[in-house]
């Protein structure tokens, strides 16, 4: 297994203390399967116990460890250092969220426009090789893991802080599909002054989404529905 020395530059921040934020470099020997999250754990446990970052599941299910890796929103747990192809890797917190310390951000604003009551489950899709219909009655979690990558990457959320952002719009669209009785109300939220109108069609949300939600497609669907009388 190959090992390469990597310089990990982390944007250190403590509001009011390490402020403005500044980069600090750590040198680590990265084996080929070492992830950004493994590196953060190693740095915290052996080099600097004050390092703050969020993590929980370590396999792209919880969405807590999202950060910007070399300027691109990614999950730390599934990003391998050596796959990044550079001797230096820069880590910064997500944009559009208040930093509470280093890479850890305050996620409350993410949920401002996502109703807690909206369902996290949807009917299961089919599985390769299965007879059609055998998935009936089965359920699956929504793909969105609420990591915040799309919000951080979206240029419109930066220029219009009131914009509810791509994750909330995708959540609205998914809830409309599952809850037709509430569809009109949900659509009006998407059409509100904090809604779809601010989308700049940059598609950054879909590019960075780690679980294939493709928020921009949901936003396009909402835009179509908002344009004319509902076709269904």
């Amino acid at each position: 297994m190959s090992v390469r020395p990597i310089e990990v530059r982390i944007l250190r921040c403590r509001p009011g203390r390490i402020d403005p934020p500044r980069f600090q470099s750590f040198r680590i020997d990265a084996k080929e399967d070492l992830t950004v999250l493994d590196a953060l754990e190693h740095i915290r446990l052996t080099l600097d116990g004050s390092l703050m970052y969020r993590h929980s599941c370590h396999h792209s299910s919880c969405g807590t460890c999202a950060c910007r890796v070399n300027g691109m929103e990614r999950l730390a747990c599934t990003t391998r250092l050596l796959d990044l192809g550079a001797g230096t890797v820069s880590l910064e917190p997500l944009r559009g969220f208040e930093c509470v310390g280093d890479l850890a951000v305050q996620t409350e604003p993410f949920y401002r426009d996502i109703d807690p009551a909206w369902s996290c489950l949807k009917p299961a899709g089919p599985i390769g090789g299965a007879e059609t219909g055998t998935e009936q009655g089965l359920q699956r979690f929504e793909e969105c893991i609420e990591c915040g990558c799309c919000v951080s990457a979206c240029p419109a959320t930066r220029s219009h802080p009131d914009f509810m952002g791509p994750a909330a719009l995708a959540a609205i669209r998914n809830e409309m599909l599952k809850n037709p009785l509430a569809a009109d109300d949900l659509l009006s939220r998407a059409g509100s002054e904090r809604g779809e109108r601010w989308c700049e069609r940059a598609l950054a949300c879909s590019r960075v989404c780690p679980t294939g939600v493709y928020p921009s497609r949901h936003i396009a669907d909402l835009r179509d529905e908002l344009k004319g009388p509902r076709s269904t």
Partner: peptide, 9 residues
């Protein structure tokens, strides 16, 4: 972070 030990993993 909450659940960063065993329970979330």
């Amino acid at each position: 972070e909450l659940l960063s030990g065993t329970t979330g993993r």
